[in-house]
Design a protein around this nucleic acid. Structure first.
Lengths: 224, 224
DNA sequence: ACAAAAGTGTTAAGAATACACCCATGT
DNA sequence: ACATGGGTGTATTCTTAACACTTTTGT
Protein backbone atom coordinates (compact mmCIF):
# COMPACT_ATOMS: atom_id res chain seq x y z
CA UNK A 1 0.00 0.00 0.00
CA UNK A 2 2.81 2.40 0.80
CA UNK A 3 4.07 2.55 -2.75
CA UNK A 4 1.12 4.02 -4.56
CA UNK A 5 -0.35 5.95 -1.66
CA UNK A 6 -1.54 9.47 -2.50
CA UNK A 7 -2.63 11.70 0.35
CA UNK A 8 -5.62 14.05 0.23
CA UNK A 9 -5.04 17.77 0.32
CA UNK A 10 -4.60 18.96 3.89
CA UNK A 11 -5.43 22.51 4.93
CA UNK A 12 -5.66 24.46 8.17
CA UNK A 13 -8.21 27.13 9.03
CA UNK A 14 -8.19 29.49 11.96
CA UNK A 15 -10.91 31.15 13.99
CA UNK A 16 -9.20 33.96 15.87
CA UNK A 17 -11.28 35.76 18.45
CA UNK A 18 -10.71 38.87 20.47
CA UNK A 19 -12.89 41.27 22.41
CA UNK A 20 -13.13 44.84 21.16
CA UNK A 21 -15.49 47.43 22.64
CA UNK A 22 -17.26 44.74 24.57
CA UNK A 23 -17.95 42.73 21.43
CA UNK A 24 -16.67 39.32 20.39
CA UNK A 25 -14.80 39.76 17.12
CA UNK A 26 -13.46 37.25 14.62
CA UNK A 27 -10.65 37.68 12.11
CA UNK A 28 -11.54 37.39 8.42
CA UNK A 29 -9.64 37.93 5.21
CA UNK A 30 -10.88 38.83 1.79
CA UNK A 31 -10.06 36.08 -0.64
CA UNK A 32 -7.71 37.20 -3.39
CA UNK A 33 -8.10 34.08 -5.50
CA UNK A 34 -10.76 31.76 -6.79
CA UNK A 35 -12.75 30.00 -5.55
CA UNK A 36 -14.80 32.57 -3.66
CA UNK A 37 -12.58 35.40 -4.85
CA UNK A 38 -13.72 38.59 -3.14
CA UNK A 39 -15.63 36.78 -0.42
CA UNK A 40 -14.70 37.02 3.23
CA UNK A 41 -13.26 33.88 4.74
CA UNK A 42 -11.35 32.50 7.68
CA UNK A 43 -7.59 32.70 7.27
CA UNK A 44 -6.43 29.31 6.09
CA UNK A 45 -4.25 27.53 3.63
CA UNK A 46 -2.31 24.46 2.71
CA UNK A 47 -0.51 22.22 5.14
CA UNK A 48 2.58 20.93 3.39
CA UNK A 49 4.39 17.65 3.98
CA UNK A 50 6.93 17.87 6.78
CA UNK A 51 5.04 20.64 8.55
CA UNK A 52 2.91 20.07 11.64
CA UNK A 53 -0.59 21.50 11.64
CA UNK A 54 0.36 24.16 14.17
CA UNK A 55 3.40 25.11 12.08
CA UNK A 56 1.16 25.44 9.05
CA UNK A 57 -1.27 27.47 11.14
CA UNK A 58 1.42 29.95 12.17
CA UNK A 59 2.74 30.32 8.66
CA UNK A 60 -0.66 30.73 7.05
CA UNK A 61 -2.09 33.15 9.61
CA UNK A 62 1.05 35.28 9.45
CA UNK A 63 0.98 35.34 5.65
CA UNK A 64 -2.68 36.16 5.33
CA UNK A 65 -3.20 38.55 8.23
CA UNK A 66 0.17 39.60 9.58
CA UNK A 67 -0.76 38.16 12.99
CA UNK A 68 1.76 36.06 14.90
CA UNK A 69 0.13 32.94 16.30
CA UNK A 70 2.83 32.89 18.98
CA UNK A 71 1.29 36.08 20.37
CA UNK A 72 -2.10 34.49 20.86
CA UNK A 73 -2.64 33.60 24.47
CA UNK A 74 -4.50 30.39 23.76
CA UNK A 75 -4.68 28.15 20.71
CA UNK A 76 -6.89 25.12 20.66
CA UNK A 77 -7.72 22.62 17.98
CA UNK A 78 -11.41 22.52 17.16
CA UNK A 79 -12.37 19.91 14.63
CA UNK A 80 -11.26 18.42 11.36
CA UNK A 81 -13.63 18.82 8.47
CA UNK A 82 -13.89 16.86 5.30
CA UNK A 83 -14.50 19.61 2.84
CA UNK A 84 -14.21 20.77 -0.70
CA UNK A 85 -10.72 21.71 -1.72
CA UNK A 86 -9.43 25.18 -2.26
CA UNK A 87 -8.24 24.11 -5.66
CA UNK A 88 -9.92 21.98 -8.33
CA UNK A 89 -8.34 18.73 -7.21
CA UNK A 90 -11.41 17.76 -5.24
CA UNK A 91 -11.66 16.46 -1.73
CA UNK A 92 -9.64 18.03 1.08
CA UNK A 93 -9.36 17.74 4.81
CA UNK A 94 -9.19 20.85 6.94
CA UNK A 95 -7.94 20.99 10.51
CA UNK A 96 -9.44 23.99 12.29
CA UNK A 97 -8.02 25.87 15.25
CA UNK A 98 -9.39 28.52 17.56
CA UNK A 99 -7.07 31.25 18.78
CA UNK A 100 -7.70 33.81 21.51
CA UNK A 101 -5.83 37.06 21.95
CA UNK A 102 -5.93 40.70 22.87
CA UNK A 103 -5.19 43.90 20.98
CA UNK A 104 -4.39 41.97 17.84
CA UNK A 105 -3.70 44.18 14.88
CA UNK A 106 -4.00 42.62 11.48
CA UNK A 107 -1.61 44.30 9.05
CA UNK A 108 -2.34 44.53 5.40
CA UNK A 109 0.52 44.06 2.94
CA UNK A 110 1.25 42.54 -0.44
CA UNK A 111 0.77 38.98 0.75
CA UNK A 112 -2.13 39.62 3.11
CA UNK A 113 -5.74 39.94 2.13
CA UNK A 114 -7.40 42.93 3.86
CA UNK A 115 -7.48 41.16 7.21
CA UNK A 116 -10.05 42.63 9.59
CA UNK A 117 -11.92 41.77 12.72
CA UNK A 118 -15.71 41.54 12.38
CA UNK A 119 -18.28 41.34 15.18
CA UNK A 120 -19.46 37.74 15.42
CA UNK A 121 -22.99 39.11 15.60
CA UNK A 122 -22.72 40.86 12.25
CA UNK A 123 -20.75 38.77 9.86
CA UNK A 124 -20.62 39.36 6.13
CA UNK A 125 -21.34 36.60 3.65
CA UNK A 126 -18.64 33.99 3.99
CA UNK A 127 -16.91 31.54 1.69
CA UNK A 128 -17.21 27.78 2.10
CA UNK A 129 -18.97 26.61 5.28
CA UNK A 130 -17.10 29.17 7.32
CA UNK A 131 -20.26 30.36 9.04
CA UNK A 132 -20.62 26.89 10.52
CA UNK A 133 -17.02 26.77 11.61
CA UNK A 134 -17.31 30.11 13.38
CA UNK A 135 -20.45 29.01 15.09
CA UNK A 136 -18.80 25.76 16.16
CA UNK A 137 -15.87 27.76 17.56
CA UNK A 138 -18.19 30.18 19.31
CA UNK A 139 -20.05 27.31 20.98
CA UNK A 140 -16.78 25.72 22.03
CA UNK A 141 -15.59 29.01 23.50
CA UNK A 142 -18.82 29.57 25.39
CA UNK A 143 -18.62 26.09 26.78
CA UNK A 144 -14.92 26.28 27.59
CA UNK A 145 -15.22 29.42 29.69
CA UNK A 146 -17.82 27.73 31.90
CA UNK A 147 -15.45 25.05 33.11
CA UNK A 148 -11.95 26.50 32.61
CA UNK A 149 -10.09 29.76 33.12
CA UNK A 150 -9.84 30.22 29.33
CA UNK A 151 -11.06 33.85 29.47
CA UNK A 152 -7.62 34.85 30.67
CA UNK A 153 -6.62 34.70 27.02
CA UNK A 154 -9.01 37.50 26.11
CA UNK A 155 -8.09 39.85 28.94
CA UNK A 156 -5.05 41.91 29.93
CA UNK A 157 -2.86 40.80 32.85
CA UNK A 158 -4.81 43.05 35.17
CA UNK A 159 -8.51 43.48 34.71
CA UNK A 160 -11.59 44.52 36.67
CA UNK A 161 -14.55 42.37 37.55
CA UNK A 162 -16.87 44.44 35.35
CA UNK A 163 -14.46 43.80 32.48
CA UNK A 164 -14.45 40.08 33.20
CA UNK A 165 -18.21 40.02 33.37
CA UNK A 166 -18.51 41.98 30.13
CA UNK A 167 -16.29 39.40 28.45
CA UNK A 168 -18.55 36.58 29.57
CA UNK A 169 -21.56 38.57 28.43
CA UNK A 170 -20.03 39.23 25.02
CA UNK A 171 -19.43 35.53 24.54
CA UNK A 172 -22.74 34.31 25.92
CA UNK A 173 -24.66 37.06 24.20
CA UNK A 174 -26.70 37.82 27.29
CA UNK A 175 -26.60 39.80 30.50
CA UNK A 176 -25.49 38.26 33.78
CA UNK A 177 -26.40 39.34 37.28
CA UNK A 178 -23.54 41.32 38.78
CA UNK A 179 -23.74 40.06 42.34
CA UNK A 180 -24.20 36.44 41.40
CA UNK A 181 -21.46 36.58 38.82
CA UNK A 182 -18.93 37.98 41.28
CA UNK A 183 -19.83 35.61 44.04
CA UNK A 184 -19.64 32.60 41.78
CA UNK A 185 -16.50 33.58 39.94
CA UNK A 186 -14.62 34.42 43.09
CA UNK A 187 -15.62 31.08 44.56
CA UNK A 188 -13.66 29.36 41.77
CA UNK A 189 -10.41 30.77 43.18
CA UNK A 190 -9.10 31.40 39.69
CA UNK A 191 -8.36 35.07 40.25
CA UNK A 192 -7.01 37.23 43.04
CA UNK A 193 -7.38 40.95 43.77
CA UNK A 194 -4.40 43.27 43.48
CA UNK A 195 -4.00 46.47 45.46
CA UNK A 196 -4.48 48.56 42.35
CA UNK A 197 -7.55 50.40 41.16
CA UNK A 198 -8.45 52.04 37.89
CA UNK A 199 -10.38 55.25 37.55
CA UNK A 200 -12.23 55.17 34.29
CA UNK A 201 -14.62 58.06 34.50
CA UNK A 202 -16.89 60.02 36.74
CA UNK A 203 -17.56 57.14 39.06
CA UNK A 204 -16.08 54.91 41.67
CA UNK A 205 -12.75 53.29 40.70
CA UNK A 206 -12.69 49.55 40.03
CA UNK A 207 -10.32 47.13 41.68
CA UNK A 208 -7.90 45.23 39.45
CA UNK A 209 -7.62 41.45 39.59
CA UNK A 210 -5.26 38.94 38.08
CA UNK A 211 -5.44 35.24 37.26
CA UNK A 212 -3.63 32.84 39.54
CA UNK A 213 -2.63 30.77 36.54
CA UNK A 214 -2.15 31.87 32.99
CA UNK A 215 -2.29 28.41 31.55
CA UNK A 216 -5.50 26.58 30.85
CA UNK A 217 -6.92 25.11 34.06
CA UNK A 218 -10.11 23.10 34.38
CA UNK A 219 -12.70 23.12 37.10
CA UNK A 220 -14.44 19.87 37.80
CA UNK A 221 -17.83 18.94 36.48
CA UNK A 222 -19.69 16.47 38.55
CA UNK A 223 -22.15 13.75 37.87
CA UNK A 224 -23.13 11.84 40.97
CA UNK B 1 1.65 27.20 -4.63
CA UNK B 2 -0.77 24.66 -6.03
CA UNK B 3 1.71 23.26 -8.51
CA UNK B 4 4.41 21.92 -6.23
CA UNK B 5 2.19 21.21 -3.23
CA UNK B 6 2.85 17.87 -1.51
CA UNK B 7 0.47 16.80 1.24
CA UNK B 8 1.54 15.10 4.46
CA UNK B 9 0.53 11.52 5.07
CA UNK B 10 -2.99 11.35 6.47
CA UNK B 11 -4.15 8.48 8.63
CA UNK B 12 -7.21 7.63 10.68
CA UNK B 13 -7.25 5.82 14.03
CA UNK B 14 -10.23 4.45 15.87
CA UNK B 15 -11.03 3.96 19.52
CA UNK B 16 -13.95 1.54 19.61
CA UNK B 17 -15.56 0.98 22.96
CA UNK B 18 -18.11 -1.47 24.18
CA UNK B 19 -19.22 -2.79 27.54
CA UNK B 20 -18.65 -6.47 28.28
CA UNK B 21 -19.31 -8.05 31.67
CA UNK B 22 -19.69 -4.65 33.21
CA UNK B 23 -16.29 -3.52 31.96
CA UNK B 24 -15.38 -0.84 29.46
CA UNK B 25 -13.48 -2.53 26.65
CA UNK B 26 -11.49 -1.12 23.75
CA UNK B 27 -10.67 -2.75 20.44
CA UNK B 28 -7.00 -3.39 19.65
CA UNK B 29 -5.18 -5.17 16.88
CA UNK B 30 -1.79 -6.78 16.83
CA UNK B 31 0.42 -5.03 14.34
CA UNK B 32 1.53 -7.31 11.53
CA UNK B 33 4.11 -4.92 10.13
CA UNK B 34 6.86 -2.61 11.27
CA UNK B 35 7.02 -0.25 12.98
CA UNK B 36 5.85 -1.75 16.25
CA UNK B 37 5.36 -5.14 14.66
CA UNK B 38 3.83 -7.46 17.25
CA UNK B 39 2.65 -4.60 19.49
CA UNK B 40 -0.96 -3.95 20.22
CA UNK B 41 -2.38 -0.82 18.66
CA UNK B 42 -5.57 0.97 17.77
CA UNK B 43 -6.99 -0.03 14.40
CA UNK B 44 -5.90 2.61 11.93
CA UNK B 45 -4.45 3.17 8.54
CA UNK B 46 -4.00 5.44 5.59
CA UNK B 47 -6.54 7.91 4.35
CA UNK B 48 -6.21 8.07 0.60
CA UNK B 49 -6.98 10.98 -1.69
CA UNK B 50 -10.62 11.13 -2.71
CA UNK B 51 -11.78 9.39 0.43
CA UNK B 52 -13.38 11.21 3.37
CA UNK B 53 -12.02 10.50 6.83
CA UNK B 54 -15.14 8.55 7.77
CA UNK B 55 -14.89 6.50 4.59
CA UNK B 56 -11.27 5.73 5.42
CA UNK B 57 -12.34 4.85 8.95
CA UNK B 58 -14.90 2.33 7.74
CA UNK B 59 -12.54 0.74 5.29
CA UNK B 60 -9.65 0.50 7.72
CA UNK B 61 -11.64 -0.77 10.68
CA UNK B 62 -13.31 -3.39 8.51
CA UNK B 63 -10.00 -4.52 7.06
CA UNK B 64 -8.17 -4.73 10.37
CA UNK B 65 -10.89 -6.05 12.67
CA UNK B 66 -13.80 -7.26 10.57
CA UNK B 67 -16.07 -4.76 12.34
CA UNK B 68 -18.53 -2.69 10.31
CA UNK B 69 -18.43 0.95 11.38
CA UNK B 70 -22.00 1.27 10.09
CA UNK B 71 -23.06 -1.05 12.90
CA UNK B 72 -21.65 1.20 15.59
CA UNK B 73 -24.39 3.17 17.24
CA UNK B 74 -22.35 6.32 17.65
CA UNK B 75 -19.22 7.59 15.93
CA UNK B 76 -17.61 10.83 16.95
CA UNK B 77 -14.46 12.56 15.87
CA UNK B 78 -12.04 13.09 18.72
CA UNK B 79 -8.92 14.98 17.79
CA UNK B 80 -6.32 15.23 15.08
CA UNK B 81 -2.78 14.44 16.12
CA UNK B 82 0.44 15.41 14.50
CA UNK B 83 2.38 12.23 14.85
CA UNK B 84 5.10 10.06 13.52
CA UNK B 85 4.22 8.26 10.35
CA UNK B 86 3.45 4.61 10.03
CA UNK B 87 6.07 4.39 7.36
CA UNK B 88 9.52 5.94 7.10
CA UNK B 89 8.40 9.00 5.21
CA UNK B 90 8.30 11.05 8.36
CA UNK B 91 5.59 13.33 9.63
CA UNK B 92 1.96 12.31 9.46
CA UNK B 93 -1.37 13.63 10.62
CA UNK B 94 -3.87 11.30 12.22
CA UNK B 95 -7.57 11.98 12.60
CA UNK B 96 -8.97 9.93 15.49
CA UNK B 97 -12.53 8.77 15.98
CA UNK B 98 -14.38 7.19 18.86
CA UNK B 99 -17.00 4.55 18.13
CA UNK B 100 -19.52 3.03 20.51
CA UNK B 101 -21.34 -0.24 20.00
CA UNK B 102 -22.74 -3.37 21.51
CA UNK B 103 -22.00 -7.06 21.05
CA UNK B 104 -19.30 -6.29 18.53
CA UNK B 105 -17.43 -9.34 17.38
CA UNK B 106 -14.06 -8.80 15.83
CA UNK B 107 -13.35 -11.48 13.26
CA UNK B 108 -9.87 -12.65 12.49
CA UNK B 109 -8.97 -13.41 8.91
CA UNK B 110 -6.10 -13.08 6.46
CA UNK B 111 -6.29 -9.32 6.34
CA UNK B 112 -7.11 -8.73 9.99
CA UNK B 113 -4.66 -8.65 12.84
CA UNK B 114 -5.92 -10.66 15.82
CA UNK B 115 -8.48 -8.01 16.73
CA UNK B 116 -9.61 -8.25 20.34
CA UNK B 117 -11.34 -6.19 22.98
CA UNK B 118 -9.24 -5.41 26.07
CA UNK B 119 -10.47 -3.93 29.35
CA UNK B 120 -9.50 -0.27 29.43
CA UNK B 121 -8.28 -0.86 32.99
CA UNK B 122 -5.78 -3.52 31.91
CA UNK B 123 -4.26 -2.60 28.63
CA UNK B 124 -1.17 -4.25 27.20
CA UNK B 125 1.82 -2.23 26.02
CA UNK B 126 0.72 -0.18 23.06
CA UNK B 127 2.36 1.15 19.93
CA UNK B 128 2.81 4.88 19.26
CA UNK B 129 1.06 7.20 21.73
CA UNK B 130 -2.04 5.05 21.65
CA UNK B 131 -2.29 4.99 25.44
CA UNK B 132 -2.81 8.74 25.35
CA UNK B 133 -5.38 8.51 22.60
CA UNK B 134 -7.37 5.93 24.53
CA UNK B 135 -7.22 8.02 27.63
CA UNK B 136 -8.33 11.09 25.68
CA UNK B 137 -11.25 9.07 24.28
CA UNK B 138 -12.14 7.71 27.71
CA UNK B 139 -12.22 11.25 29.15
CA UNK B 140 -14.37 12.44 26.28
CA UNK B 141 -16.76 9.55 26.76
CA UNK B 142 -17.02 10.15 30.52
CA UNK B 143 -17.72 13.80 29.88
CA UNK B 144 -20.15 13.17 27.05
CA UNK B 145 -22.39 10.87 29.06
CA UNK B 146 -22.83 13.55 31.71
CA UNK B 147 -24.50 16.00 29.36
CA UNK B 148 -25.92 13.87 26.55
CA UNK B 149 -27.81 10.60 26.08
CA UNK B 150 -24.70 9.04 24.47
CA UNK B 151 -24.89 5.89 26.64
CA UNK B 152 -27.69 4.67 24.42
CA UNK B 153 -24.97 3.58 22.05
CA UNK B 154 -23.55 1.11 24.56
CA UNK B 155 -26.86 -0.46 25.58
CA UNK B 156 -29.47 -2.66 23.93
CA UNK B 157 -32.81 -1.19 22.88
CA UNK B 158 -34.34 -2.30 26.15
CA UNK B 159 -32.31 -2.16 29.32
CA UNK B 160 -32.78 -2.04 33.06
CA UNK B 161 -31.81 0.78 35.38
CA UNK B 162 -29.19 -1.38 37.10
CA UNK B 163 -27.68 -2.01 33.66
CA UNK B 164 -27.68 1.68 32.87
CA UNK B 165 -26.08 2.47 36.19
CA UNK B 166 -23.46 -0.26 35.73
CA UNK B 167 -22.58 1.31 32.38
CA UNK B 168 -22.01 4.69 33.99
CA UNK B 169 -19.97 3.05 36.72
CA UNK B 170 -17.83 1.17 34.21
CA UNK B 171 -17.04 4.41 32.42
CA UNK B 172 -16.50 6.56 35.50
CA UNK B 173 -14.62 3.83 37.28
CA UNK B 174 -16.50 4.36 40.52
CA UNK B 175 -19.71 3.37 42.28
CA UNK B 176 -22.80 5.55 42.19
CA UNK B 177 -25.62 5.68 44.70
CA UNK B 178 -28.57 3.72 43.38
CA UNK B 179 -31.37 5.95 44.63
CA UNK B 180 -29.71 9.19 43.60
CA UNK B 181 -28.74 7.83 40.22
CA UNK B 182 -32.28 6.78 39.42
CA UNK B 183 -33.86 9.96 40.64
CA UNK B 184 -31.45 12.11 38.69
CA UNK B 185 -31.45 10.09 35.50
CA UNK B 186 -35.22 9.86 35.37
CA UNK B 187 -35.45 13.62 35.86
CA UNK B 188 -33.63 14.08 32.54
CA UNK B 189 -36.59 12.58 30.69
CA UNK B 190 -34.27 10.75 28.34
CA UNK B 191 -35.73 7.32 28.99
CA UNK B 192 -39.16 5.84 29.55
CA UNK B 193 -40.28 2.61 31.22
CA UNK B 194 -41.80 -0.20 29.19
CA UNK B 195 -44.27 -2.72 30.54
CA UNK B 196 -41.72 -5.49 30.31
CA UNK B 197 -39.58 -7.02 33.02
CA UNK B 198 -36.60 -9.34 32.95
CA UNK B 199 -35.96 -12.12 35.40
CA UNK B 200 -32.25 -12.60 35.69
CA UNK B 201 -31.80 -14.81 38.72
CA UNK B 202 -33.06 -15.61 42.14
CA UNK B 203 -34.33 -12.13 42.83
CA UNK B 204 -36.92 -9.59 41.92
CA UNK B 205 -37.29 -8.95 38.18
CA UNK B 206 -36.09 -5.64 36.78
CA UNK B 207 -38.18 -3.28 34.71
CA UNK B 208 -37.04 -2.58 31.16
CA UNK B 209 -36.60 0.98 29.90
CA UNK B 210 -35.94 2.49 26.51
CA UNK B 211 -34.50 5.77 25.28
CA UNK B 212 -36.90 8.36 23.93
CA UNK B 213 -34.39 9.26 21.26
CA UNK B 214 -31.72 7.13 19.74
CA UNK B 215 -29.80 10.01 18.27
CA UNK B 216 -27.37 12.12 20.26
CA UNK B 217 -29.27 14.68 22.35
CA UNK B 218 -27.74 17.24 24.69
CA UNK B 219 -28.90 18.47 28.03
CA UNK B 220 -28.12 22.06 28.88
CA UNK B 221 -25.26 23.18 31.06
CA UNK B 222 -25.72 26.47 32.80
CA UNK B 223 -23.48 29.23 33.93
CA UNK B 224 -25.43 32.14 35.38
C1' DA C 1 -25.72 68.07 44.03
C1' DC C 2 -25.97 65.00 40.59
C1' DA C 3 -24.77 61.41 37.26
C1' DA C 4 -22.45 57.16 36.53
C1' DA C 5 -20.54 52.86 37.26
C1' DA C 6 -18.49 50.02 41.34
C1' DG C 7 -19.46 47.49 45.03
C1' DT C 8 -22.15 44.67 48.49
C1' DG C 9 -26.03 40.55 51.29
C1' DT C 10 -30.14 38.10 52.04
C1' DT C 11 -33.84 35.12 51.02
C1' DA C 12 -36.08 31.44 48.45
C1' DA C 13 -35.98 27.60 45.38
C1' DG C 14 -33.78 23.82 43.43
C1' DA C 15 -30.10 20.30 43.13
C1' DA C 16 -26.95 17.16 45.20
C1' DT C 17 -25.80 14.11 48.87
C1' DA C 18 -26.15 10.75 52.48
C1' DC C 19 -28.43 7.05 54.06
C1' DA C 20 -31.64 1.87 55.25
C1' DC C 21 -35.24 -0.91 54.51
C1' DC C 22 -38.87 -3.67 51.87
C1' DC C 23 -39.96 -6.47 47.51
C1' DA C 24 -40.12 -10.31 44.20
C1' DT C 25 -37.95 -14.11 42.77
C1' DG C 26 -35.33 -18.97 42.59
C1' DT C 27 -33.55 -22.56 45.17
C1' DA D 1 -36.79 -19.76 54.83
C1' DC D 2 -33.12 -17.67 52.92
C1' DA D 3 -30.15 -15.50 49.58
C1' DT D 4 -30.03 -12.27 45.82
C1' DG D 5 -30.38 -8.19 43.53
C1' DG D 6 -34.49 -4.73 42.41
C1' DG D 7 -36.86 -1.06 44.04
C1' DT D 8 -38.21 3.06 46.98
C1' DG D 9 -38.20 8.21 50.35
C1' DT D 10 -36.58 11.73 53.42
C1' DA D 11 -33.65 15.00 55.72
C1' DT D 12 -29.55 17.90 55.07
C1' DT D 13 -26.36 20.55 52.67
C1' DC D 14 -24.95 23.11 48.91
C1' DT D 15 -25.80 25.71 44.78
C1' DT D 16 -28.39 28.81 42.04
C1' DA D 17 -31.49 32.67 41.32
C1' DA D 18 -33.84 36.79 42.25
C1' DC D 19 -33.51 41.18 43.80
C1' DA D 20 -32.05 47.11 45.55
C1' DC D 21 -29.35 50.11 47.80
C1' DT D 22 -24.80 52.42 49.14
C1' DT D 23 -20.08 53.99 47.66
C1' DT D 24 -16.72 56.67 45.19
C1' DT D 25 -15.60 59.46 41.83
C1' DG D 26 -15.72 63.66 38.12
C1' DT D 27 -18.13 67.52 36.67
Amino acid sequence: MTGEYVAPILTVDSVIFQITDGQLMVLLINRAAEPFKGSWALPGGYNAAGETTTEALSRVVKAKSGIEVAKLKLVEQLYTFDTVARDPRGHAVSVTYMGLGLNLEPKDSKTTQSPQFFPVKQLPELAYDHHNIISYAHDRLASKITYTNAVYALLPELFTLPQLQATYEAIFGRQLDKRNFRKKYLSFDLIKPTKQFVKLGAHRPAQLYEFNQKELTSLSRSFD
